[in-house]
């Protein structure tokens, strides 16, 4: 007896869903998943980028080497300093600017501010770094404007020539470039909060300050989480600003030798692709753990309306 199978509408729709998802899955496998697996595999070998000989199996040798390496720990320090110094201001100021634009400005001026903040995000990181190199060079605009404002003619702030200032300069470029992008995300999040909640709070005598902390921040939590995860991952992956500053700007490498720059130097310039793969896997694990931790923390006090 022939067995009749009943396919529900959900299953039919699911087929279409699969069809739509397949291209992106393929894309992900080709450009993300495959390189990750490949890097994990390569990190176990003493592989030199130009060598045609079979690479020597080292097991965890590359990992042991990098964890003993002063250069790697300097890169971890540089990455941590850059991430904390950029990610926290990015999160705080993008929320501040978004709230300012959303609440204070009219529709026209809101559009103007959105475009103004977002414009640097359109530039490629390389172009942004190149522009800032001109500004931060000793005879550049950075010194000129500050000296004019502070009435301190001829002072060189050593934007690129002092370790601390150099780290600050890379943070400044990144902050300038990405602030607009996160402002737009926050404005989108703010638009999803029903205005009736603010109206009810105002009738109950709530001040703007109270409304911000008691309504806006709790209800904006999903967006804050999204922005914080995205900003943190972006900061951990920073590369082009540091690369341009050291290659074209003549800045010292050690203070801003973030882990991605170290991976590039180790894998491409020094040809040790196995060791560079081990570093990239360590970075991947750090990013994974931090993202997981952020999700865990944010889930503990979810707010709904």
């Amino acid at each position: 007896m022939k067995k009749t199978t009943y396919r529900g509408i959900e299953k039919k729709q699911a087929r279409w869903g699969v069809a739509f998802v397949v291209p992106s899955v393929l894309f992900f496998c080709l450009f993300s998943f495959y390189p990750i697996i490949n890097a994990m595999f390569t990190s176990l070998f003493d592989k030199r980028i130009l060598s045609l000989a079979a690479p020597k199996f080292l097991g965890l040798g590359n990992y042991i080497y990098i964890f003993k390496s002063a250069s790697f720990w300097n890169s971890m320090r540089a990455t941590l300093v850059f991430t904390l110094g950029t990610f926290i201001p990015l999160l705080v100021f993008s929320l501040m600017f978004a709230t300012f634009i959303y609440n204070i400005c009219g529709r026209r001026s809101r559009g103007f501010f959105q475009i103004a903040y977002y414009t640097p995000a359109v530039l490629s990181s390389v172009v942004a770094a190149a522009i800032w190199l001109l500004i931060l060079a000793p005879p550049g605009l950075g010194n000129q404007v500050l000296n004019w404002l502070c009435r301190t003619p001829g002072v060189d702030r050593k934007w690129l020539a002092n370790g601390t200032m150099l780290q600050f300069s890379t943070m400044l470029v990144y902050f300038w470039k990405y602030i607009g992008y996160f402002v737009i995300l926050f404005i989108t999040g703010l638009a999803t909060i029903p205005p009736t909640i603010y109206e009810a709070a105002t009738i109950d005598g709530s001040s703007k300050w109270q409304s911000f902390w008691r309504i806006t921040v709790p209800l904006l939590k999903p967006t804050i989480l999204l922005v914080s995860v995205m900003a943190m991952l972006q900061c951990l992956k920073t590369f082009s600003t540091q690369y341009l500053f050291t290659q074209s700007g003549g800045a010292a490498q050690d203070p801003i030798n973030v882990i991605t720059l170290n991976i590039y130097e180790t894998g491409i310039r020094n040809q040790r692709i196995g060791r560079a793969s081990a570093m990239s896997i360590v970075l991947f694990v750090i990013m994974l753990v931090l993202t997981f931790a952020q999700f865990k923390i944010s889930k503990s006090d979810d707010v709904d309306y």
Partner: peptide
């Protein structure tokens, strides 16, 4: 790599 080590030494005394 050797070039990079020299670069790091010179930069560290000149700039850092």
């Amino acid at each position: 790599e050797m070039q990079k080590l020299l670069k790091s030494a010179v930069e560290s005394v000149m700039l850092s």
